[in-house]
Design a protein around this nucleic acid. Structure first.
Length: 293
DNA sequence: AACTACTCCTGGAGGC
DNA sequence: TGCCTCCAGGAGTAGT
């Protein structure tokens, strides 16, 4: 569930409290959650100071002293909480367990003890999250291997770039296109639906069927939806449903509820095995549905 | 090369 | 209450 806005707001929060802290002890109780292509081991982060906290796509990069970095991907259900005793200093990611729940939770699988007595907890009810230790000068290589696309807030994400990618994958459903991290990074299931709702484009529209105006609209919607989430609060959907009475998110999690724009009942369909919510009135169906993979 | 299906994992929800 | 089944979703990988 943590998508770009969740990871970015978490990064900003942790930057306030973690920079300059030294890691005394590190522990991951689920060995599968450590990916260690360089054979450095998790303990190699001990004794190092957190100097910088970056984000690339949906990943957090902790740059430590001595040229070592730790990359954290929260995947579907990862959560980080920086606490001193019971006091929450900073937190973010998947909202289950609740951010004010006592830690460690039974799904807490990682802990980093810091030099001021605070602890950075990694909790993940799905255990899909991953931690990688990598020399700082090889972080870019590691990212390059993943064939990540452009950052939506970066200078490379232009209307022309989007148009070019859409042409290249012209048969793909828009929803599938937006989830593909090799084009634009950062969108997940929630914000892909939000961007399509905002752009008034049906999730099954073939990527190659968009007019120039629609491409420009989609481009702006992607940026606006992500920026809105960062500035006004992330989606925070615990079980893929909006909280009763909430007016956000505007499409995802609202199946069977009235569209906030026109009142039409929001529909839920599967697009490439991902639940996809949209307004059949605001987002008119394509004449001929594409493949959905 | 481009696309699709499958896999990892477990807690919560809903049915009976 | 308790058992059972289904569902959620990022991304790596294997197969078409």
């Amino acid at each position: 569930m943590p998508e770009l806005p969740e990871v970015e707001t978490l990064r900003l929060d942790l930057c306030r409290t973690l920079i300059g802290r030294r890691i005394l002890h590190a522990d991951l109780t689920k060995p599968r959650m450590l990916v260690d292509p360089y054979g450095l081991g998790l303990l190699s982060v001990e004794g190092r100071t957190i100097e910088r906290l970056r984000r690339r796509a949906k990943m957090l990069v902790f740059d430590l002293s001595g040229g070592l970095s730790m990359v954290v991907h929260l995947k579907l259900a990862g959560q980080l909480s920086h606490r001193k005793g019971d006091h929450v200093l900073a937190k973010g990611g998947h909202p289950v367990p609740p951010f004010d729940a006592p830690l460690p939770h039974k799904s807490t699988h990682g802990r980093f003890d810091l030099d001021d007595g605070s602890v950075l907890w990694l909790t993940d009810i799905r255990q899909f999250g991953r931690v990688t230790v990598v020399p700082t000068d090889l972080v870019d290589d590691l990212m390059a291997e993943k064939k990540l696309g452009v950052e939506p807030f970066g200078p490379e994400f232009t209307v022309d770039y989007l148009a070019q990618r859409l042409r290249r994958h012209k048969a793909l459903a828009l929803k599938t296109f937006l989830l593909d991290q090799s084009g634009i990074v950062g969108l997940g299931n929630i914000y892909a639906d939000e961007a399509l709702f905002e752009a008034k484009l049906h999730p099954l529209r073939p990527a190659g069927s968009l007019t120039a105006g629609e491409i420009a609209r989609l481009h702006r919607s992607v940026v606006d939806v992500l920026r809105y989430a960062i500035e006004n609060g992330v989606a925070d959907l615990p079980y893929a449903r909006v909280r009763p009475g909430a007016d956000y998110p505007r499409a995802h999690g609202r199946a069977d509820m009235p569209c906030l724009t026109c009142g039409t009942t929001i529909e839920r369909i599967k697009v490439g095995a991902r639940s996809t919510d949209f307004c059949p009135s605001c987002q008119p169906a394509p004449a001929r549905p594409p493949r959905t993979g």
